[in-house]
């Protein structure tokens, strides 16, 4: 096992050696964790703010004292809409519902919502799930993205 795998993931990547493709602070590392069913985020040690995906600095206070923290999958819908005019890669799925979800940690992220637009409301409880990308999504993926899972919120 190389050195980077042994290093505890309790702080942001403050040295160049910390920035590796298996660190959740990078997108390859974040999606590798997600593919295994683990949703990771960063929590700011100074102000407590939670962010998904993890990143090297807190956007709420500017601190780089951020630590990787497993995120809850449960959250609630903050806003939502339906996409009627999709990008080419998503044509077959339209119309589909997308939303902004706030997780129980306070982190907010956008994702598809696996429900009809009319069946969703602000405040609905949802849970994050992951699946492999479909054929059209794979066709639109860049070479380094083909193993990255797609996250979808299911209404609970």
């Amino acid at each position: 096992m190389d050195e980077s795998r042994k290093r505890p993931r309790d702080r942001g990547p403050l040295s160049r050696e910390d920035v590796t493709a298996d660190s959740p602070f990078t997108l390859p590392g974040f999606f590798a964790e997600l593919a295994e069913g683990r949703l990771t985020g960063a929590a700011c040690s100074d102000c407590g703010h939670a962010m998904v995906p993890p990143r090297p600095a807190c956007y709420a206070c500017g601190s780089r004292a951020v630590a990787v923290e497993k995120q809850p999958r449960a959250g609630e819908v903050v806003s939502y809409t339906a996409v009627h005019t999709p990008p080419p890669a998503f044509e077959a799925r339209a119309p589909y519902t997308v939303g902004v979800v706030e997780l129980a940690s306070g982190a907010r992220l956008t994702g598809r919502v696996d429900a009809d637009y009319d069946a969703v409301a602000i405040g609905d409880p949802v849970e994050l799930t992951v699946r492999d990308p479909g054929d059209a999504e794979l066709a639109a993926a860049l070479d380094h993205e083909t193993d990255w899972p797609i996250h979808v919120f299911e209404v609970r």
Binding site: P53, S79, T81, V83, P87, V98, V100, L109, G111, R112
Partner: peptide, 20 residues
């Protein structure tokens, strides 16, 4: 990472603001 791969478009981004 998260928005484009969710099939988001410009109108749907602004619709999220409008809905709220």
């Amino acid at each position: 990472a998260l928005e484009q791969r969710s099939g988001i478009t410009a109108p749907s981004q602004y619709a999220l603001l409008a809905q709220r």
